[in-house]
Simulated scan of single mutants.
Amino acid sequence: MNVGEWAGLVAAAGSILGGGGWFVSRATRDAARATAAATEAAARANAAPAQQQASLAVLEATVKRVDEENGSLRGKMSRLEAVLRAFAWTTDRWSQQMHRAGIEPEPPHPLVEEYNRTGV
């Protein structure tokens, strides 16, 4: 073989090996990406229980607060209903006193009539 033939052979081998190097570098890059994705997924999986615990703590605190507010509102509502019943009883008694005295009272408001009819 002469020098020109050797140069051609070396050039051909270089292009074949150079192309193989491209495939190797691409596979290495893809493997690095896969490893990074797996590491990130593992980190997320390890963080998930802590995140769930934090979310559960927030939910429990919210439920406790809402229960306390509901208890307070129920107490206020019960008191308001008791005052309304007492007021209705008092005004009914006054109305009866006026009828016995021959005084015709003003007609009650429609909401009062509805309450007297239904209790609601």
Rank of each mutant, 00 (worst) to 15 (best):
D30I: 10
P105R: 00
A36L: 13
Q53R: 15
T90L: 14
V10F: 04
R79T: 05
R65P: 06
V66M: 08
E40I: 12
V24K: 10
G4E: 12
S55R: 15
L59F: 14
G102W: 02
V120S: 08
A57R: 13
G102R: 01
Q53T: 10
N46R: 13
G75I: 06
R100F: 05
T28S: 14
N46F: 13
T28F: 13
E106T: 09
V3R: 04
F87A: 11
T90V: 11
T91C: 07
A54M: 06
E5V: 04
T28D: 15
K64E: 12
G18T: 00
A41Y: 05
E106D: 11
A43E: 13
L56K: 11
S72Y: 12
T118C: 01
S78Q: 06
R79F: 08
Q51C: 07
K64R: 11
N46D: 12
A101C: 01
E114G: 03
A88I: 07
S25W: 14
A11P: 03
A32Q: 07
G20E: 00
G14Y: 01
A37Y: 08
V63Y: 05
E114Q: 00
K76D: 11
K64I: 10
P110H: 07
N70G: 10
D30E: 11
E5F: 02
E104R: 05
E113A: 05
V3D: 03
Q97E: 00
T39R: 13
R26L: 14
A27C: 10
A82I: 03
Q96E: 05
S72F: 10
N70T: 11
S15Y: 06
F23H: 07
S78F: 06
L111V: 04
P110N: 01
T39C: 13
V3G: 07
E69R: 09
D30T: 12
A61D: 03
A34G: 09
R117N: 00
A54W: 07
T91A: 10
E40H: 10
S95E: 09
L17A: 12
D67G: 11
M1A: 08
I103F: 02
A45V: 07
D30P: 06
T90P: 07
A45S: 09
T28N: 15
G20P: 01
H109R: 07
V3A: 11
A50T: 06
A101E: 00
L73T: 04
W89Q: 15
E60K: 14
H99A: 03
V58W: 11
N46L: 11
E69D: 13
E81V: 08
S25R: 08
R33W: 09
E60Y: 12
R33N: 12
H109W: 04
A45M: 12
W94A: 15
A12D: 12
D30F: 10
I16C: 00
A45L: 08
R26T: 10
T39Y: 12
R100N: 05
A37M: 07
S55L: 10
A32T: 06
P110V: 03
G14I: 00
W6K: 14
N2D: 00
R85N: 09
G4P: 06
A48R: 15
F87T: 09
P110M: 02
L17H: 03
V63K: 05
A88R: 02
A13T: 02
A101M: 03
S78R: 09
G18A: 01
R93S: 08
N116K: 14
Y115F: 00
K64V: 15
A34Q: 10
T35M: 12
R93I: 08
